[in-house]
Structure formats: structure tokens, C-alpha cells
Simulated scan of single mutants.
Amino acid sequence: MKKVLFKSVPFNKDHITLALESGVDAIIVAQEDVEKVRSLARCTVLAQDAMPVIAFASKKDEEEAVSRLAKGEDVVIARGWEIIPIENLLAQSDNVTVEVATLDEAKLAAGILERGVNAVVVLPEGAEELKRIVAELKLSQGRLELVPATVTAVEHAGLGHRVCVDTMSVMKTGQGMLVGNSSAFTFLVHAETERNEYVAARPFRVNAGAVHAYVVMPGDRTTYLEELAAGEEVLIVGHDGSTALATVGRCKVEVRPMLLIKARVGGTEGAVFLQNAETIRVVRRDGSPVSVVALKEGDEILVRTDAAGRHFGMRIQEDIKEG
């Protein structure tokens, strides 16, 4: 996740209000305007002198930036930068910050050398695209590859403790969380975005599965559903593999009747325990949700396959079999 700062020089209250509503990490203003911003919201405000700007007009400018970064100084590379000089900086520092004014520039900066800059400073001329820039650099976690799996079993599994994850975000049709018995085979469990004649939609909620199940988290991690807690960031995944961050508002663990759902991709089979209720859905290969009540053998649903092997949620190299 990249840092997004917004520069409002000269001072523009409308732009600053937009930046605060967008969720930027900090706002840069002239020294005399710092207290004005602090009166609007609890946020990080930086005087522009604290982050001097270096324009790359020659190799000497690049060398100056390298030297100042090596000393631990915070500098910003002026808009108009080119990829090769930024690559040179990234080879020597993890604290590279560049100016941008468009979403395309922000995405380019975030992807250089596959790890990108640490932060971008959005200039006033980029205000129109600020919300999209924040969503791309702070909420998106890239794309995950989802594949269709063939359902091989849907079986009653008795009572169990299941975890209902209520987030502070509203999800759309086709979005949910990746959950499974194995970190190497997770099912896209759909958010409660659909309403029926008995139950209203709860688009902030994923009724995610049994307490013991793995859930895919930001940063290529997993955790057990039972360990999720309010304030923690979780990974929301779309049927197209797109990702976003959401913050847990609360988790509800309750005893409910459960179903065991198994599916296969090639020679690999995975499983997940989900509540036996019409509102609980997985996702068809075309992105449409299907209730576990209607699910049957032979149906195709979306899953993610991966290499097994996790220790405290972190990927490790180990011979392991999870069922």
C-alpha cells in the first residue's frame, strides 16, 4: 500500500476538504496555512519546506536526491520525472516520493520495478482524480487469479461456530472474501449484496464460514476467521480478481447449521464449511452469486488455488497437506 499526500499550495479549502474526505495520508501546505488545516480535521499536515522538491534536469540532480535520501531526508521528485532515474533511486532507497497529477502517472510510479515508489504527492491539478488515485494506491492490492472449480459435494455438516464479518465498506455484486479449509484452495464467498422477499441486503457483510477456516488477507497473508477483530483490514476480492481493502467493524460468532462444500480444479480438491442458509452465496464463473442452498454437484464456482504452507499467516516453503 502506497502513501498518498496532497499538496495544496496555494491554499484551497475546497481541495483540502476533498483530500480529507478521500483519505489521504497527509496534506502539504505553506507554513502559514498549517494551523488552518489542523482546524478542519485530525490529520497529518506538513509544511512544504519539510519536503523540498528536486527537479531532475541533469544527472547531478539525481545524485543530489540519492545523497539526501541516504542521509534520511524527505525529498520529493518533481513532476516530469522519467522511469530510469526513478529506477536508479529505488535501487538505493525505499523512501522515494514523486509528484503526480493524474491517475496514470500515479499508477506508473507505483509499479516501477514491480514495487514502485513509497509515496506520491498529488498536485492541485490532480484534484479531480484524487479519489481514484487514493482508491488505486491505498485500497487496491493488485489482482488475484481466480479459476473455475467444479463442485463435487454439498453435504450437511451439523452445527458449528461460524463467523459473520461486518465491514465498514459497502460491497457490490461479485465481491466477497476468499475462504477455505486450506490456504492453497480458497472459495470466493459472496457478500450479502442480494435481497430477497424475506431478508434485506446487507452489502457490508460477508457471512464467511467456520471459525477454523483460513481467509486471505492483504499482503499475501492468511489468518483464521476466528482471529479477525474490529479495526483490522481485510481483503475484498471481486469475481474479476480485483482487490480492495476494507476495515472490520465487528465480527459475530454464532452457532449455526453448516454445509460442507467441496470443489475440484484438475487433480486438486478443496473444501469450505459455510452456513446452511439461502443468504450465503458463492460465485459462479460469470460473476453472479449462487446460494449454497441451490448449489449442486457439477456447478462451476470461482476459487483461488495457491501453494500450501503458512506459518502464523506468512508464506513459507514447507511440505504440507491441508484438507
Rank of each mutant, 00 (worst) to 15 (best):
L46D: 02
V265E: 03
E114L: 12
Q141H: 14
Q92P: 03
R42F: 10
K60Q: 13
F56G: 03
R310D: 00
V216H: 11
E226S: 15
V151N: 07
G116W: 09
G116H: 07
G313N: 03
G267H: 03
S242E: 08
I16N: 00
I84P: 11
P10R: 03
M177G: 07
S93F: 00
S183L: 04
A65Y: 01
G111R: 09
A19V: 01
K131S: 13
K262G: 15
I84F: 14
R79P: 04
I77W: 00
I83C: 06
V34I: 15
A153G: 12
V98T: 05
E73Q: 09
D220Q: 10
A213C: 14
L178V: 05
G287I: 08
L295I: 01
L178N: 03
P124F: 05
A101Y: 11
V179M: 04
S182F: 09
E62C: 13
I83T: 14
V98K: 01
H15F: 11
T279G: 12
Q275S: 04
N276E: 15
N196C: 12
V53E: 03
A153V: 10
E64F: 06
E297A: 14
K3V: 00
T305Q: 09
V303P: 04
V98I: 01
E87I: 11
A127M: 06
K131N: 12
F56W: 04
D306E: 12
V66H: 03
